[in-house]
Every structure is written in C-alpha cells, then in structure tokens.
Simulated assay, not measured.
Amino acid sequence: MTTTGEVGREGTKDRTWLVAVAAALWGTDGLLRLPLAEDLPAGTVVFWEHLLVVVVLLPLLPSAFRALARCGPREWLAVLVIGGGASALATALFTAAFQVGDPITPLVLQKLQPLFAVLAAWALLGERMRRGYVLFAVPALAGTWLLAFRDPLDIEVSALRAALLALGAAALWAAGTVLGRLVSTSLASRDVTTLRFAVGLPMSAIIVAVQGNTFAVSWDNALGLGLLALVPGLLALSLYYVGLRATPAARATLAELAFPATAAVIGVSFLDSTLSATQWLGLFVVIAAVTALGWHERTRPTPVVVPPEPAGASGASGTSRAES
C-alpha cells in the first residue's frame, strides 16, 4: 500500500469508512428483526433472509459460480465457511446461546470477535499491526464493553454450553471477515456477496430442519422479511465487501464496531430502550474510535495495519495474494 489516503497497489483507496457504513446498516437489524422474532423462529427468519436475497441475485448466480470455478481450493473453502459458517451457522449458534444460558454470557464472549479476527488476519493473510493499532483497538473494545452492559463492573459469565456456542459464533464471524478479505483478491465484490447468500441458503435450510421449525411464514411478515433481507442484508453486505477489498481485515474488524453503536441508537430512538450513563459513554467512545481510525487511515502516510508484501517481493509469504 502507498499512503493510505492515496491510491493503493491495485488502484483502490482505503475504504475503512465504507466498512463502518455497512456495519452501521447492520445496526438497523434490530428494528426489523424484533417484530419478526415475536412471530417466527430465529432459524426461519435467517432462512427467508437468504432465500429472498438469492431470488434477487438469481441472474448473477451463474457468473459468480463461474468465477469461483476458476479459483483454487483455498477460495472454495473460504466461500463455504463464509456462506455456511459466518452467514448462517454463526447466527444460529449465537441465538442458541441465548436459549440455553443466561443473556450475559453470549454478549460478553461476542466481544472476543475482533481478537479472533486480528489473530486470523495475522495467521492467514500475513497482516502485521503497528503499535499505533492499539490506540484505536483498546478504546474501541473498551467502548463496546461499556455499551453492552448497564453495569460493566457486575458481569458474570456462566453456563459452559452457552459460552461454547457464543465462542463458536464469534470465531465464525471473525473468520468471515478474514476470509472475505482473502477471497476479495480473486473474486469481485459482487461475486462474493452472491456466493455468500447462495451457500448460506442450504445451510440455513438445514438449520431449520434440524431444529424442527417451520419454513412457512404469513403474509403479515412479508414486508419485514423483505426489508430485513435487502437493507441490513444485501445492501449492507454489498457495501461491506466493496470496502473490505481495500481494507485490511484487522482494521475492518474495528470498523465493524459501528454495528453495536448504531444498534444502540436505533434501540433508544425507536425500540423504547434506555442506556445507562456508562453505556452512553461507551457509545461515544466507539463512535470516536471508529471515526478516528477511518480518518487516520485516509489522511496519514503510515497505516496502523501493514499488509503483506506483494507477490514477487523479497520475503513475500504464500498469503501475499490477500493484500489490497
């Protein structure tokens, strides 16, 4: 990468801000999902989200699969994990964690997702974090912790089964970020989005069948399902993969913290939620950290995440294809 505010090696500019915008759109999820959750099982909602998006993207499926056919086994495996794991299975695991345990445990352990993503980005993509990374990561993670709990000093993690389910969800979501970054050098953003939903659809159907839930929904839920599929679903992920193509995964995972910040604002504004003083503090800290990260990467000559060396450079690793 050249300077972060300039054109990068592949002619693209840093798009940390676009990842944050996509994550903010995910924050509208609760406004649409809450009424549906009162009428439908979670697995059924996830299935219809994938089905509606696949119907919209149907004309793009042949070209997306042709593009995937030209890739190697690494990209095939990555797409399977992104679609089946990060898109469908992770949501099912996170929902199950709430069902079998207390509501605190999944929220606590979900905060480990950025840490999983940073480790995976280092191991799979060869990304290296400079010391300046912690100046954004620590406040962002601390702010997310404050935002998640009314009393951040009175947290008790219990129920081993719920904890394992939540850790599995966090790991899969982190893998989705890193593997999405990996395949973005071999597949167009449009193809990654299309394949994610196409692979996630049969996995979500399997989840519904295993849980013994119904696939049927009423027309009363049609509008909500459509908006859920197209706004925090298709639109957000389309922007996300465009942004991820030019954003190192370790940096993108911090930009994704715009998601809980937006969700909190939506909850207070439309869902009759209230925030404690420490939650308001956490909200402002997250917004400030994510905004500062995007500003720094666009205006400063030294990025906080060092991409791997380009192919052919001295000392380049086998993961060098995953750079921006």
Rank of each mutant, 00 (worst) to 15 (best):
T4E: 13
E10A: 03
W17N: 10
A20F: 01
G30V: 13
L32N: 07
L32I: 04
L34H: 14
L36I: 15
A37I: 14
T44R: 14
V54S: 09
V55G: 11
L57D: 06
L68F: 01
A69L: 13
R70H: 12
G72K: 06
E75P: 11
W76N: 06
A78E: 04
L80G: 07
L89G: 01
L89Y: 01
T95K: 15
A97G: 14
Q99C: 10
V100A: 09
D102A: 02
D102L: 00
P103D: 00
T105P: 07
L109H: 05
L109E: 00
K111M: 06
K111P: 06
L112W: 01
L115T: 14
V118H: 03
R128E: 03
P139W: 02
A140M: 09
A140G: 02
G143M: 01
W145S: 09
L146R: 08
V157D: 09
A166E: 13
L167I: 08
A169K: 12
G176M: 08
T177R: 02
V178P: 00
S184G: 02
T185K: 11
L187N: 06
V192H: 05
P202Q: 01
M203A: 09
I207C: 01
N213K: 14
N213A: 10
T214P: 08
L223Q: 07
L228D: 14
L230D: 15
A236K: 08
S238P: 05
L239R: 09
L239E: 04
T253F: 02
S273C: 03
T274N: 04
A277S: 03
L281M: 04
I287Y: 01
G294I: 07
V304Y: 03
P308E: 03
P308W: 09
P310N: 05
S314Y: 10
A316L: 14
